[in-house]
Computed example of a mutant assay.
Amino acid sequence: MGEISIKINIADRVYPLKVNMEEEEIIRRAAKLINDRIKEYQENYAVRDKQDLLAMSVLHYATSSLKAEKKVSFEDTEVAEKTYQLDKMLNDFFSKQ
């Protein structure tokens, strides 16, 4: 599928983008998440500067992303270890027969 032009509003600024059609929904959802986070920070903290709100939102999502990467890496390692143990058990079982 081809590229389309869309406009995304983040922190009261409009950003024209060219995106693949299949990515449009994800980008719009991401923009909504960012705007929702900014609104939450605006309501709960005495911060009004959009730049500060954007920085706080980026820090939140970057931290979440790194935590998710770490979890996936740990789970991948755990799965690999269990696969190795299972393979060893099967090899031991079949070598005895």
Rank of each mutant, 00 (worst) to 15 (best):
D36Y: 00
R37N: 10
M89F: 07
L33P: 03
E75D: 15
R28S: 01
R48C: 11
T83K: 12
R29S: 11
N35A: 03
I8R: 01
E24D: 02
N9M: 03
K70N: 15
R48T: 13
E43C: 01
E78G: 00
I6G: 02
D92F: 07
I34Y: 01
Q51S: 05
V19S: 01
A68W: 00
R37S: 13
L86S: 08
G2P: 06
M21I: 15
L33H: 09
K18S: 11
E25K: 07
A55G: 03
K96L: 03
K88P: 13
L54V: 08
N9Q: 08
N35D: 03
T63F: 12
T77R: 08
S5H: 13
L54Y: 10
Q97G: 06
I27H: 08
S73N: 13
R37L: 01
K70R: 12
T77W: 13
S64A: 12
M1P: 05
N91I: 09
E3Y: 12
E24K: 07
L90C: 05
L86H: 09
L59I: 00
Q97Y: 07
D87T: 14
V72G: 00
L33Y: 07
S73P: 09
K32H: 10
I4G: 08
E24T: 05
F93I: 14
K32A: 05
L53I: 08
Y41F: 06
R48L: 14
M1N: 06
T77V: 01
S64E: 09
K88T: 15
I8M: 00
V14F: 01
I6Q: 01
K67N: 15
F74G: 07
K50R: 11
K7T: 08
A68M: 03
I26M: 15
